[in-house]
Nucleic acid binder design. Structure first.
Lengths: 346, 346
DNA sequence: CTGAAAGCGCTAACAG
DNA sequence: CTGTTAGCGCTTTCAG
């Protein structure tokens, strides 16, 4: 016999399927004679009955699934977030459908369509794109969602993001405390909300601390990658900028700096201090271990999950933005400037 | 109006839902007047109709989903495998449901149950456990599946695994070529099939190359983690073993060695050469960059996907095992022995 | 408290 | 070629 159905249980218990259904569902169990309920339940699990959520979903219009849209699963940023999400979704009886968009807008459209056709009850979206017609459309169509890593401007949408402002300030202040004054910024792409937020925070922090906020000391990296980080630092140096420390908008960009330093025969932190952002795994194994601003990824995923579940349960609840506090993790890539005598100079 | 149903399309086109269904499904489109079909299709997408795979699944007993069971998503080994899988599943119209078991057997049972109740059509399983009643049970119940990273002994089950034998031999030969003769093994847990296979391959390779296969030169790590790797190397040193190189059964265990070396004031590769296994990301950024045996993760996922799709399409096809060729990636953690004069010694 | 009946959206015989 | 009928497994009125 194949996996038993509700009918089989009902037959075996000598009751109507409807009664069996009520007995088996904790929420409706009260509607049924305690004795009958007990019997049905016993029979159900002696038969190894497992309810079929698909059939249930067809009736109730609840699939028990939520769509998770991320740029790329192999970006080490995401797995811990996904675990955090999973840890709240699973106990609530939800399963996540994860898709990787590779940052491709059309692919994202297609994948979101496919998720919606699979009747997901909500979406967790991790695009950083500033401009995003798709999101606005989804929002206007009443799709429940929460954004992570991006706070949508104008849009009344749930979000959970690291507090970029305090994160960057932590980084800048740390460098200032070490005695750095000429601090450069390798900004992330300004087409992304995090890129913009971190850049803005950098300039604000510099001014707040009375440090020179020289435009020549910051440059935009085209992508959030090592290659772009390397290119950025090279360009800064080629332009003749002088600085003893650099704040990278994320860890991968910081790693790109390591490549450039190696290729120029410079040393970190002696010749240049570097601070990353995110707190990826294995940063402590690098040479030198990277000082970074750590984000509570797992918690971020968890908050996103909770927000989404609430949005599903209470559709009228207004959207909320939760900001997670980042932490400065000091490691070997930052030190007082000029330890080996001379500042970085072209 | 909510998302339109097949009925809406049929009504708008003035045909019966069944006809609309046939027209919309490429496989049955031939059964319908080309003209009618065209009209239905046009109406369908003018209405923005998207078929509901859940309803379809209920009827056809095909959910279009695959369960993917891994120990831990945050293990950097898995994301590329999952991408490889996704890249073959998605075009085939399948979606993966990913669960992390944390290596916990009970949790695994529960999660697999939950996947099965969600009517997955097949399972991709990445447990390395040697003993695994659950797998045998699933197999005997006729669940379509493919194992990754583990070749089940006895069980007639599809699998795709790296060729541990040639991988380890590559590692040992590389060290031998550099002039090492006393090579230690930090074995993985012998409760896992990969742990056993790699250990066996190590001993065989040593003997084949005429090197001393001294039992004192190998030790089993309790888990595949940095901590266990560190503990293993410490134990080996504490026991007074002499060796100039170590083969770690995976990259994390190798990273554990770095910690011990740092804590003892020893240097890699000068005092000890280290080679890892897997080819995790960011290994090239470590200090020193880790020499490792790289596995084609993405391809591994892809093969697993293909095998599973075939197993679903042709249930009677006999199971197959595909072995993927690993590659030696030489980096800074290996060099000739005794570069700085003295071998590692307690 | 329990049974009967209907239907979620779709597809698969079976007629016509 | 197309319409009718029935039903996937479950829940939910509505009666009783």
């Amino acid at each position: 016999m194949q996996t038993p159905t509700l009918r089989d249980v009902a037959d075996a218990a000598g009751v109507h399927p409807a009664t069996a259904s009520r007995a088996l569902n904790p929420a409706t169990r009260g509607l049924v004679n305690a004795e009958t309920a007990r019997r049905v339940i016993k029979i159900a699990d002696s038969l190894g009955y497992r309810p079929n959520p698909i059939a249930r979903g067809l009736k109730t219009a609840k699939s028990g699934t939520i769509g998770i849209v991320i740029p790329d699963l192999t970006n080490p940023l995401f797995p811990p977030i996904l675990r955090g999400l999973e840890d709240v979704l699973e106990p609530a009886g939800y399963t996540g459908l994860i898709v990787s968009t590779d940052g491709d807008y059309d692919r994202e459209r297609t994948l979101v369509e496919s998720l919606r056709s699979r009747q997901v009850e909500g979406l967790v979206v991790a695009t950083a794109m500033l401009e995003h017609p798709l999101l606005e459309q989804l929002h206007s169509e009443g799709v429940r969602m929460v954004m992570i890593n991006r706070r949508p401007r104008g849009l009344d949408v749930n979000s959970v993001t690291p507090d970029d402002g305090v994160g960057i300030e932590l980084a800048v202040r740390h460098l200032a405390d070490l005695g750095h004054t000429r601090i450069a910024l390798l900004a992330g792409p300004q087409t992304t909300s995090t890129g913009v937020a971190r850049s803005r925070a950098f300039h604000t922090s510099m001014r707040d601390l009375g440090l020179p906020d020289d435009p020549a000391l910051s440059i935009e990296c085209a992508t959030w990658t090592e290659a772009a980080g390397a290119a950025g630092l090279r360009a800064l140096r080629a332009a003749g900028a002088e600085f003893t420390a650099v704040v990278a908008s994320n860890d991968l960009i910081a790693l790109g700096c390591y490549d450039v330093l190696a290729e120029c025969g410079l040393r970190c932190p002696d010749d240049l201090s570097v601070v990353g952002f995110n707190g990826m795994p294995f940063l402590d194994k690098l040479a030198p271990p990277l000082t970074t601003i750590a984000i509570p990824h797992h918690q971020l995923g968890g908050e996103a999950g909770r927000l989404l579940l609430e949005a599903i349960a209470e559709p009228d609840r207004p959207a909320r933005s939760v900001l997670l506090p980042p932490a400065l993790v000091v490691r070997g890539s930052t030190d007082s400037p000029g330890r080996s005598g001379r500042p970085t100079r072209q």
